[in-house]
Amino acid sequence: MLLCDFLRHELHAFAVHVGCEHGVCGACTILIEGRAVRSCTQYAAQADGADIVTAEGLAPPGTLNEVQRAFMKHHALQCGFCTPGILCSVAHFLRQTPEPDERRVREMLSGHICRCTGYTSIVTAILEAAAMMRKGS
């Protein structure tokens, strides 16, 4: 069974979205051991014993993290189908690259397809979240 199917239909982690099942669209991106990876090109058995975070777990229940807040503020989501995957990528990316410039953000984002937003607002949100997180820490 694909890992994304397992997370969704066995564990009911429905934030894991499936847009292509061939590793291109990025909707199924999750964090495994803190690293942003596709869950559609892995099998559930492969993740045996792994530490997995989906978009449900990016912030304590009832709260939004800095990135989620910035997404809301900058209207960085429309249908929101691509969003949980992007949020997972951003979580890993900003840990690795706390001071990204626009080019690096766009390159990181190129592993996701968003059909609604045209990306600009997502880029703005990520850059602002990065700045806020730097201020906060």
Binding site: G23, G26, S89, F93, M108, G111
Partner: peptide, 9 residues
């Protein structure tokens, strides 16, 4: 090579 997310794996 690919993208941030695919290089991770």
């Amino acid at each position: 090579v690919g993208h941030f997310q695919t290089r991770n794996r």
